[in-house]
């Protein structure tokens, strides 16, 4: 588990400020949710934190160590992993192979040219463990391209888990998952609480308020409020900017 410190982080696409001077500290072990209306810059923020996007200004630190200049693969090796809102899989690989490859990145050299990787029990066992945790072990031998949407979400989670993160960034893990499936997913996430620091982007308010230790509200690239779910729910600025809007939509 690690502490994630974000200070004065910015990112613009042309004239559009997508991330506007964001500062936030997520203490070790916390599950921190980021909510906000569509286009608030949530995914951009995750991409900056994971190293997929370079930031224009600001600093990102893990346990006090500056990681702003590192690449995405380097951050994974430091223990910062992410999942994607739009599922990124290796479609021609089996589910097990997808996850075993994530395990392999953290265990031993990948410059081994001779031994058959498919028969490395250590990789397969660790991959199966991650799959079990994500609730997808029964599909281990299926091709990733043959998975349903909900199963894709689980594979996305299993891959992130297999990198043995100390900080896990989850970009809408529940997107498009409904009903019992969503409940099981929330239960799985709850079971992981305390094992690593988590930052969660999610549209499902129910899930957010059930899971999160603290919540930040992002609107037009700025954090307008941070606090416990109860504090955020009762914050007047949040109600007008975001929750009110949701309630209106619901009505």
């Amino acid at each position: 588990m690690s502490t994630l410190e974000i200070s004065h982080l910015s990112k613009s696409f042309g004239a559009l400020k997508v991330t506007d001077d964001v500062s936030l500290t997520v203490p070790s072990g916390e599950l921190h949710a980021i909510i906000g209306p569509n286009g608030a810059g949530k995914t951009t923020l995750i991409s900056q934190l994971s190293g997929q996007l370079r930031s224009d200004a600001g600093r990102i630190a893990m346990d006090g160590r500056d990681i702003t200049g590192t690449t995405m693969p380097e951050r994974v090796h430091l223990g910062l992993a992410r999942s994607f809102q739009i599922t990124q899989t290796l479609p021609g690989f089996t589910v097990l192979e997808n996850v075993a490859l994530a395990v392999q990145a953290r265990h031993g050299s990948s410059f081994r040219f001779w031994a058959r990787v498919a028969s490395e029990a250590a990789l397969n066992d660790a991959a199966m463990a991650a799959l079990k945790e994500a609730g997808l072990d029964h599909r281990a031998e299926a091709r990733a391209s043959a998975l349903s949407h909900g199963e894709h979400r689980r594979l996305e989670l299993a891959c992130a888990l297999a990198t043995e993160p100390r900080i896990l960034l989850l970009d809408e893990p529940l997107a498009g998952v409904g009903g019992e499936d969503a409940d099981a997913f929330v239960a799985a996430l709850r079971a992981m609480k305390g094992r690593f620091t988590m930052m969660l982007i999610e549209h499902d308010m129910d899930a957010v308020f059930r899971l999160a230790d603290r919540v930040s509200v992002l609107v037009y690239g700025r954090i307008i409020a941070t606090g416990t779910p109860d504090e955020v729910r009762s914050d007047p600025a949040v109600r007008t900017a975001y929750l009110g809007e949701e309630e209106e939509n619901a009505a």
């Binding site: 479609p91 994530a102 990145a105 990948s110 990198t163």
Partner: peptide
């Protein structure tokens, strides 16, 4: 396996540390 993975989806590979 890493080489084939990069063919399939480079973004995924970077996100798991390659």
């Amino acid at each position: 396996r890493v080489l084939t993975g990069i063919r399939e989806n480079p973004t995924r590979m970077e996100a798991i540390g390659y």
